[in-house]
Design a protein around this nucleic acid. Sequence first.
RNA 1: CGGGGUGUAGCCUAGUGGCUAAGGCGCCUGCUUUGGGAGCAGGAGAUCGGAGGUUCAAGUCCUCUCACCCCGACCA
Length: 581
Amino acid sequence: MRMSQLFSRTLRQAPAGAESRGYEYLLRAGFIKQLGAGIFSNLPLGFRSLKKIEDIIRDEMERIGGQELTMPVVNPAEIWKETGRYYTIDKELSRFKDRVGRDMVLAMTHEESVTAVAAGAIDSYRQLPQLVYQIQTKWRDDPRPRAGLIRVREFTMKDSYSFDADHEGMVKQYEAHYDSYFRIFGRCGLSVIAVGSDSGMMGGKVAHEYMYLTSIGEDTIILCDKCGYTANRQVAEFAKEYYSEDMLEMQEVETPDTPTIQALADFLDIPKRKTAKAVFVMGTFTDEHLQEYQKLIIAVIRGDLEIEEAKLQKAAGAKELRGAGDEEIRSCSMEPGYGSPVGSKNCLVIVDDSAAESSNLTAGANKPGYHIMNTNYGRDYTGITADIASAVDGEACTVCGMPLRSSRGIEVGNIFQLGTKYSEALDCSYQDIQGKRKPVVMGSYGIGVGRLLACLAEEYHDEKGLILPISVAPYQVHLVSLMKSGEEPQQLYEKLLDAGIEVLYDDRKDSPGVKFTDAELLGLPVQITIGKRTLEQGAVEVSLRRDGEKELVPLEQVTRRVQELIDMLSQELLDSLSEAP
RNA sequence: CGGGGUGUAGCCUAGUGGCUAAGGCGCCUGCUUUGGGAGCAGGAGAUCGGAGGUUCAAGUCCUCUCACCCCGACCA
């Protein structure tokens, strides 16, 4: 490609709102262009990178037996009603009616459609297992898109779906994906870790997320450096210490101006772990007639710990949670700041095991300025016990007991063991060897392609611009010509093309400074500089973007030398694969 | 959906209610220049996000509205 003809142009200044360096460079280098909140165009350079990522994904999907197909972005709402997601997913799922008033949705993922397709295609156990995948546009009307390509509303996702006769088969395909994903991310040059995760709206039990660890990430990961335990904070567990002793009589005490645990502990001069904290939230639930209703939830946890909302939501079985207002709390006979489940009415009580298993905790008296000492779960109040505590730095690992550490990360892929949720809802079944009809057992597996590129831009840049790995850079070579006349640059360009090398040829009439700066901004792995000065020695300069060290290469050896460098860079990425966990 | 912020040319910015809306980058033409974002001269490009209003006079003040960004809620 000639740079003088390139569709996009580089920007000297970053458009306002480019928060991270990776995003800034993608914009300035002309990879992407924003059209609306969370809506981007992929310009030719960005599109080439995305295609390279997609081809790596295709390669690896085919390796584990995947067959590519595509499914429609617009779905009749009917199948989404049958699986219930039409009702359980909120505004994130965009709905509309077609011209005759039929309910339609924009697919945010394709479990429904793939299951409907498979229902017609699969009849017999002989056809199983199956694995199909697509690289398709998804639309999710996220309430808050942000961070450039990290969190968008329209995006390209690789999604694959496995179909098996039984759980064991599904686990096999799940494990194949588990390894395949490391190969995919590795070939793109991105280091990720797999962490146990919440299955969220997908349903199912076992799930992993592939996280790229970065300070700009929006998920919090809990890890154990000793034994390798990793989990999203939403589901991360830790070893809790209980403090059990003989139960004492409840006793009300006056505790003025102590609406927080800290104030209470200071006032009574007791450790926080001797207190019980009550957190009030309103949960939205769906009854058997699919009618929504709200109910106050009081979450009780020992005062030295914090509530993890995702865990609480799951334990309560609520569709969504929001903070409760003071009046809502009082209407259930409790008092904000001095609340406890003792004497509560008309609300759902969820008790963390830390509070349930510890004795004689000081809890609110449900009147301002008073607390009750020596409350005990089971004797003084009841409720559902569950683990609703948030794992934080320094808590003990459940596996090995060593202190846990937290880190920020971005989810670039996920794998779910779905089971039969969708196959049962949409009647996707097969006949087994005994002629018995059974639902197929499914798995679903996603990779955000654009998000992956965004993570790579985040990982691979310096103060001058991008330094994308050779496997995903839009071109392999940036040929910079400083000549104002002469045939040599053009001839070299054609020679490289003939050798099958991907070249971006800067044939513009700009000054050397402009060209070098742009070459650094785009950051193509190999740079060739050809100018009068080099030609006097019958040579060109060749350098790698990542270190900038220049070598003089005779004209007739350029193609071979550049090919060597490309092979070396490619091999490095492949070599790193064996190191994957 | 709550809180905060910003909308002036392709990009970044300036602009006490008062003359024809200013500058830098980029763009076009010509000349010069060519190993690190060149120089000179000339030029194009803005219904100041939109709609109402106040005023002799609105980019500037008021109301409404739209869009985008950030924090939170939410989420892959």
